[in-house]
Simulated assay, not measured.
Amino acid sequence: MSSNFSDEDKDELFLSCRYGDLEDVQTFVTQHGAAALNDLRDENGNCVLHMVCANGHLDLLTYLLSVTSPSLLSVQNESGSTPLHWAALNSQLAIAQQLVQHPAGPGRDLIDIKNKAGLSPLGEAEMAGWDEGAKWFVEMMNLDGDGSKEGEAGDEDAVLDTEDGANRDIRVEIEDADGKIAKMTISGSINGAASQSTAS
């Protein structure tokens, strides 16, 4: 294995990650070692996970998470965005779930990281109009100071539909970096019917 590789090799690797070419990435690792992947960044500060997560390549993400440092999960590019931000921006739910649930990673703390625009991955999901992802992020968010999840019972903004006890609405307020409050209502059904969320 050689840790010496050309700019062309690096460019090819990032293209392989962008297009989900697992075999080419494995070939790079065979030739140069998995450790080389940890320090590689493109001209915008993106790591290999940014490319994979933006484009929804779940098999390649699974491989990369098995051979790279968990620290890559929280790498921020020049705009302050993590791979999870890019997954949210491009509505990649399976990717977002794998990033947050990776056993060796930072877990739900990833959802709290804000980019230079003041947006967390949840904020990116809202901006993109990706309701399914926004709902999942809210369900996974860190506990607040009193030990209850934001938007759950005990939060003044959480309400249960009382028609038949089968539906619930959760209202969440999220403060951005400028102190502005975004309100979201998540409507769900306990019996497994379709759910949706709306941002205001």
Results as ranks from 00 to 15, higher is better:
20 G>Y: 01
20 G>M: 03
20 G>N: 03
20 G>W: 00
20 G>Q: 03
20 G>L: 03
21 D>I: 13
21 D>Q: 12
22 L>A: 05
22 L>S: 05
22 L>T: 10
23 E>F: 06
23 E>C: 04
24 D>P: 00
24 D>Y: 10
25 V>G: 02
26 Q>L: 11
27 T>E: 15
27 T>H: 12
28 F>I: 06
28 F>G: 01
29 V>R: 04
29 V>F: 08
30 T>C: 11
30 T>Q: 15
30 T>N: 14
30 T>E: 15
31 Q>F: 10
31 Q>V: 11
31 Q>I: 11
32 H>G: 07
32 H>P: 07
32 H>E: 09
33 G>A: 08
34 A>H: 10
35 A>H: 13
35 A>I: 14
35 A>M: 12
35 A>P: 09
36 A>W: 04
36 A>P: 08
36 A>Q: 13
37 L>W: 02
37 L>A: 04
37 L>T: 02
37 L>I: 09
38 N>T: 11
38 N>H: 10
38 N>F: 08
39 D>T: 15
39 D>R: 10
39 D>E: 15
40 L>Y: 03
41 R>Q: 13
41 R>I: 11
41 R>F: 07
42 D>H: 03
42 D>C: 04
43 E>T: 14
43 E>R: 13
43 E>N: 13
44 N>A: 06
44 N>I: 00
45 G>D: 07
46 N>R: 13
46 N>D: 13
46 N>C: 13
46 N>Y: 04
46 N>F: 01
46 N>I: 00
47 C>Y: 01
47 C>L: 04
47 C>K: 01
47 C>E: 04
47 C>S: 15
48 V>F: 04
48 V>L: 07
49 L>P: 01
50 H>G: 07
50 H>Y: 08
50 H>L: 09
50 H>P: 04
50 H>D: 08
51 M>F: 15
51 M>S: 14
51 M>R: 13
52 V>G: 00
52 V>W: 00
52 V>C: 03
52 V>D: 02
52 V>E: 01
53 C>R: 01
53 C>G: 02
54 A>Q: 12
56 G>C: 05
56 G>M: 04
57 H>Q: 07
